[in-house]
């Protein structure tokens, strides 16, 4: 057991984890944050994406112990109470969600993009989200959603 101190969705926490435990296991199984999804567990699909110090990383390939001292944001941490984050709102309204399994990873990756580049063009969006696989949507509406979110971003985020 290793004791890890980290901030999860703004809350400082301390949790005991196994040496060989991934951050994905800790989030889902110890912390009950099941919004982070597992599609492959091998780094291939992007559905386990979380933000580590604001950058999207794959939680299935991150050791929980390596979250020590870092800030983690999961999909549960985006909305403020009832108010959806602009990226969430845009995904909802633009029809960018179908089965929703890729959605948490997509939304977090998109948020990180807009945090650093609030005005991306379509190609930039596609590049930034290209490691997140979606089997349902054909991607059109996901890219639309990020464009829509970008429009309201400066005041919304």
């Amino acid at each position: 057991m290793i004791i890890v101190q980290m901030t999860v969705n703004g809350n400082p926490i301390e949790v005991g984890v196994g040496d060989e435990e991934t951050l994905l296991e800790t989030l889902r199984q110890r912390l009950g944050l099941t919004g982070t999804k597992q599609g492959c567990d091998l780094g291939d699909c992007g559905s386990c994406t979380v933000l580590l110090d604001g950058k999207p990383v794959l939680s299935c390939l991150t050791l929980a112990a390596d979250a020590q001292g870092h800030e983690i944001v999961t999909i549960e941490g985006l909305a403020q109470g009832e108010d959806l984050h602009p990226v969430q709102r845009a995904f909802h309204e633009a029809g960018a969600v179908q089965c929703g399994f890729c959605t948490p990873g997509m939304v977090l990756t998109a948020k990180a993009l807009l945090d650093t580049n609030p005005n991306p063009d379509r190609e930039t969006i596609k590049g930034a989200l290209s490691g997140n696989l979606c089997r349902c949507t054909g991607y059109v509406k996901i890219v639309n959603a990020v464009e829509i979110a970008a429009k309201v971003y400066p005041e919304g985020a």
């Binding site: 099941t34 919004g35 999909i75 909305a79 969600v97 929703g100």
Partner: peptide, 19 residues
């Protein structure tokens, strides 16, 4: 019409079987 389960899927509330 945005999907009626859209918000739950966007906030991590939606419960999939493994959840």
């Amino acid at each position: 019409l945005p999907r009626i389960d859209g918000v739950a899927k966007l906030t991590g509330d939606a419960q999939y079987t493994d959840d």
